[in-house]
Write a protein that binds this DNA or RNA. Sequence first.
DNA 1: TATATTATTAGACTACCGTCTATTAATCCG
DNA 2: CGGATTAATAGACGGTAGTCTAATAATATA
Lengths: 200, 200
Amino acid sequence: MSEGKRSAGRPRDAEAAGTIKAATLKLVRERGYEAVSIAAIASEAGVARQTLYNRWNTKADLVLDAVFEETGRYASAPLNDPTQTSRMQLERFLVQVFEHLAENGSTIRALIAAAQENNGFREIFRKHFVNPREEIVTDLLKRAQERREIGQDCNINILSSFVHGAFWYALLNGDTLDKDFARNIADEIFRSDRKSSGQG
Amino acid sequence: MSEGKRSAGRPRDAEAAGTIKAATLKLVRERGYEAVSIAAIASEAGVARQTLYNRWNTKADLVLDAVFEETGRYASAPLNDPTQTSRMQLERFLVQVFEHLAENGSTIRALIAAAQENNGFREIFRKHFVNPREEIVTDLLKRAQERREIGQDCNINILSSFVHGAFWYALLNGDTLDKDFARNIADEIFRSDRKSSGQG
DNA sequence: TATATTATTAGACTACCGTCTATTAATCCG
DNA sequence: CGGATTAATAGACGGTAGTCTAATAATATA
């Protein structure tokens, strides 16, 4: 269903999307989300503003597409390493996420803000950004449960929302997200006593 | 230092602040944060726009002041009830917060968004909204630790960020915040095994 | 009373978002 | 080739936030 027949009419400029995303990436990295206007991106890309709106609904949709195209890629591969304890896998995942955030944290904050102001974008953001990352942690916790590293009666979804919530909360409140924080989260999730109970 | 000497110049209209906050409260409740403009508030209050900006820096500051004047009041009193388990106190606190959120959740979400787009407001919001609420949970957990309801070696700050993070995360992602969620959070924080370890 | 000082008001101003329109360009199909 | 159709472009448009200015009003002080 991706290309199909190009029924009729002038076709879209095949290069425009790439050019626009490159311009977006460049400007957002240089100046930050808030300081970049749609007009500036269009100008940098050498297209009319409408060409942008033909492809993305809002600035937030465009930036999500341009800056986080690699969604889910950065964390999936190195994580499922059965030779490591789940606690260590979680800590390493969080360190990785926090390093990513040091570069893109302000953009992510802006997108979270945009998601609050725009219902359409909230769903897009959730589907393309939030859910994939949540799944990584949920899967990790499920494996941990299978390996008896946490109790069978633990509520995986709640623990997952503890993990994600903790760093959203820190991110949005301007706290520092460092290795200590990653270790403390992993410690508290995988307390030695957490694996002691029931068999589910 | 509150009134001091009114050195010179025309004094501020003593009633204006109240009138403006009342108008803000009314319109935000009726239409929601995004749909209310500063111009509409000024018009409703019967003052010029500048009179608003003489008192608050941004729409977010005004709304925080108007809608959440009672910050910290709604939850502090009934919470410290030593006849209840700490787990129960936490669950009741969360239920109370979630009920409050059912009414004001969308405004809070808008303010969290505004805090991402405005550094000045982020600090105000943190000081007047986030920190007082965080302290309630931190205090509750400290008392729980004194009463040996959780382990002496638990990291109170991390547990507190689990609790707050969990509902921020749910709130910002449009999840439902119900009694089950409150119970599940309290259950997972106060797992029976969490109190089993070290003496700090 | 006269002066300095501050508040209020109306309205101009810049900058932005997202929509819309009219014109021109590129393609398909008969 | 000649319509039909869709894209790209330039620019107008309405709505909003927050700043700024000029005129007027209210107060303290000399």
